[in-house]
């Protein structure tokens, strides 16, 4: 459960990486992603992947859950990676069921796999370990449009309410003997269910708006958290910038 107000003070036991200024963590994660996408050399990308793994270890992310998330991302791109050697023109290295696989395609596939995994791991380590509300407030401080930040914060707050509503409606349907099948009645009923949830969500949003107005809401949410750059933040920012600049120089200048 997240709270609309969080104290902003995280308990001291958290690893140093998670005590970095949230704004810095978001900017670092984005910079890391941009750098990783710009690199093409497989050896440099391997270094990026290693750094991402180190960041994950430094952030002390729960191992099982993190692996699950990374695998979830990999399952999206696995098909593309598997087909790439066969769809790209180039020097054939082997044939499978009469289809030639190209060396260039294989290299490209490895490059994409390395980039994607490095980016996802760095994101999880830097931005993913953050409290959702902190994330929203940090985005606000980074001048992300207030409407987008509000959307994010309200989604976090109400997604569980919607899930509960869906669950109760489904229970009530079950109570009246509903068992989904492949027929018009099932499609119609699910249509009604989705439609009713949309209408309720609309009405709920109006009620929330009214309740917020009653408490003096004028379009800006008070952002309660204070962020400040401390010594360690500056050191981290400098080190990270130097590392990424070096990577880019190696790729493009040397």
């Amino acid at each position: 459960m997240t709270y609309v107000l969080s104290t902003g003070i995280e308990p001291p036991a958290v690893p140093a990486l998670r005590r970095l200024d949230p704004r810095l963590r978001i900017v670092s994660a984005v910079a890391f992603a941009v750098t990783a996408v710009a690199l093409q050399s497989l050896s440099l990308l391997t270094v990026m992947l290693l750094v991402a793994v180190m960041l994950m270890i430094a952030a002390k992310l729960p191992v099982g859950q993190t692996i699950k998330r990374v695998i979830a991302m990999d399952s999206f791109i696995i098909v593309m990676i598997a087909f790439l050697p066969f769809t790209m023109e180039g020097t054939p290295i082997f044939t499978l069921f009469g289809f030639p696989a190209s060396y260039e395609g294989l290299i490209r596939a490895i490059e994409i796999a390395l980039t994607a995994n490095a980016v996802v791991m760095a994101m999880l380590a830097l931005a993913g370990s953050m409290e959702e509300v902190t994330f929203g407030q940090a985005l606000h401080r980074l001048k992300v449009p207030a409407k987008l930040v509000h959307l994010l914060l309200f989604t976090i707050r109400y997604i569980e309410v919607l899930r509960q509503e869906y669950r109760r409606l489904r229970q009530a349907m079950k109570c009246r003997g509903f068992r989904p099948g492949t027929n018009g009645h099932t499609y119609r009923s699910f249509g009604y269910l989705v439609g009713m949830m949309l209408i309720r969500a609309m009405e709920r949003s109006e009620r929330i708006m009214d309740a917020m107005k009653c408490r003096g809401f004028t379009g800006t949410l008070p952002m309660t958290q204070r962020f400040e750059l401390r010594g360690f933040d500056v050191v981290f920012a400098l080190g990270f910038s130097v590392f990424m600049t070096a990577m880019l120089m190696k790729e493009y200048l040397l």
């Binding site: 409606l169 009604y192 269910l193 009713m196 309720r200």
Partner: peptide, 8 residues
């Protein structure tokens, strides 16, 4: 009652 009524 809103948990139960979902049709138009």
């Amino acid at each position: 009652a809103d948990d139960q009524l979902f049709c138009p």
